[in-house]
Design a protein around this nucleic acid. Structure first.
Lengths: 337, 337
DNA sequence: AACCTCTATGTAAACGTTTACTTGCCCGAT
DNA sequence: ATCGGGCAAGTAAACGTTTACATAGAGGTT
């Protein structure tokens, strides 16, 4: 490895001088500068970041832990974080966690060891008490899409309750009263929140959800597929179903397609997330949009702000809100023809 | 920051001993070990990776440069690399390049400065001569989805020519002879390759592509959308169209949907990539599958192998091959009813 | 009792930077 | 001539590890 020393030797100056021309940290004679710069080029010298970090005690890097890389959800978050940080000269580095509690904790530790100064963590698999402990250990970490009691100012998330309400409101508005839902794993609190928002507004309007019409999905297409098949087999009177994500809605749509039931004429669909493909489904999927990119960006900014000693905890950002994107998968029953 | 020194002080031993218990690098008395371990826990000590890297001159890390994070394409590649490397104890770190030549070169430099020992680079925007230079500068870098003359053993990619041929063959097999295509930017050699594969086999079978039916797309839905509208406006006799990616096919499908032309009855679609959503389109999209995850994994393995002094260049992996995934978007004209 | 061997531990140098401090020099003011 | 002030460059310490080498006991063998 070619180091400062080699450059210095070749240029006939001291390492201090080389460092100075590199970092423009104090004036250096223009001739010497040229000589040094040539030496740098000739040797293809690159500063050793490890040494810099060690000396400067700073890395200008924030670490992101995601469940996996090949997911539109995490991709958007990562992109958001990266964009927010690029502006302030920080680097983003990401690590995948395998979706397990251990994986998420380890990933955080690994990023920390890599001298990340701050973190944004998706920690859906860690127990709450453990998570609190983590937040204490890593005082600059921010949690994404989850709310930790006592640490609200370090969480950036969607208002999932409100989002669930909106889904219900939309269905109600369109004249549906006989409604089914396919949820996700109930240990995820985003799912629980959406579900309570959904059921409570249905109740409030006097159309309480029939417990038989609650299907537990797995957040992937297969879950939606089998749920819809069950629903159809049960021969219920349901006219609409709320899927807790678009993937399951897609699976459900496929089940309908295979059985010849038409969406939305026979059954209405509303999804969640608004993934890229939602607009390209046939019919285009009405869904509750979750601004993941923005959430990522906000998390990135927060993580960065946490670094400043002057951080104002009262500048806490309100939870993000979801919006229903109306497309063509829910039938408007109020205009009977 | 709590360091080895603090632990040593608290435990009443030397830093060397602490290092030894951490790394189990030589036997240490069980009592001392316990004391040290307690000290480590009490202080919540974590080794400083920057210092370790500096001293050990190794990072066990490979860097990946992608165009962006929020793309199914790069997500899959990243996931593949990560999985391949996880097995051999390496970490993956990724950086986004903004899709520009400068961005890609800078990202590589940045990863290199971070002491990555090896790299997998998606460098679609850099000029070939510049890329050759890069490959010389970074002797452990591997290029993904591009072939650099003279450096074939360090490129892992799809056989795009063959993939284009397969698309054509499939259409031909299904009885289509009047065919259109919407390509991507022709400066990308993957696009060029697919195109030449496609056109040449059409020619070979005596159904040379009508130049008027070649549309230049932008690889995103809008490109497919407008291309299909043009095609439909031109009132041609084309019965099938080959899209250079699924995104454009989705856009095209939407155009058809709006204009009431039925896929595949009125117009057949074949896409490229096999993104997740292809199977959920309506009709499900027939497409040429590109095994991106596998490509990523292979690239990761290669990048790792390059590190060994015993690397055998003859163990070069053949280009990956694409397969057409038959679904329902191309009409079989050979069974006339 | 002198010697050797083994094991457990300590000492200190090194990794590649940055930077406070020092040095040397030139030039203008006295 | 001498001094002082600036500027350019050099010296060396420090960052937190790892590790080759040195040291010190504890037994064992003669």
């Amino acid at each position: 490895m070619v180091g400062l020393k080699d450059v210095a030797a070749l240029a006939g100056v001291s390492t201090a001088t080389v460092s100075r021309v590199i970092n423009a940290t104090s004036p250096v004679n223009v001739e010497t500068r040229d000589v040094v710069e040539k030496a740098i080029r000739d040797l293809n010298y690159r500063p050793n970041r490890a040494a810099q970090m060690l000396k400067m005690q700073t890395s200008q890097t924030i670490g992101v832990v995601v469940n996996r890389f090949d997911s539109p959800y995490f991709g958007a978050i990562l992109e958001g974080v990266d964009q927010a940080l690029r502006g302030v000269g920080f680097k983003t580095i990401a690590e995948a966690s395998n979706e397990t509690e251990k994986g998420q904790i380890d990933a955080l530790a690994s990023l920390s060891a890599r001298q990340c100064e701050s973190f944004v963590v998706h920690a859906d698999a860690v127990q709450e008490d453990k998570l609190v402990e983590l937040l204490q250990h890593y005082p600059t970490a921010v949690v994404v899409n989850r709310e930790v009691p006592g640490y609200e100012t370090r969480c950036v998330k969607l208002d999932n309750i409100r989002a669930g309400e909106k889904a219900a409101e939309h269905l109600l508005q369109m004249g549906h009263t006989d409604i089914a839902t396919v949820t996700g794993p109930l240990h995820l609190n985003e799912i629980r929140d959406r579900h309570t928002g959904f059921t409570s507004t249905l109740e409030k309007h006097g159309h309480a959800l029939n417990p038989d019409l609650i299907y537990r999905g797995n957040l992937s297409p297969s879950g939606g597929y089998s749920a819809v098949n069950e629903l159809l087999d049960a021969n219920t009177s349901a006219t609409a179903v709320f899927f807790h994500n678009d993937m399951m809605a897609a699976g459900g749509m496929q089940a309908c397609y295979e059985r010849g039931v038409h969406v939305p004429q026979d059954l209405s669909f509303i999804g969640f997330d608004d993934l890229d493909f939602a607009q390209f489904m046939n019919p285009p999927l009405t869904t509750v949009r979750q601004p993941m990119r923005e959430i990522g960006a906000a998390a990135g900014q927060l993580a960065h702000a946490l670094l400043g000693p002057d951080f104002d905890a009262s500048a806490t950002l309100r939870p993000f809100k979801a919006d229903v994107i109306e497309r063509a998968s829910v039938l408007n029953k109020t205009i009977k023809n």
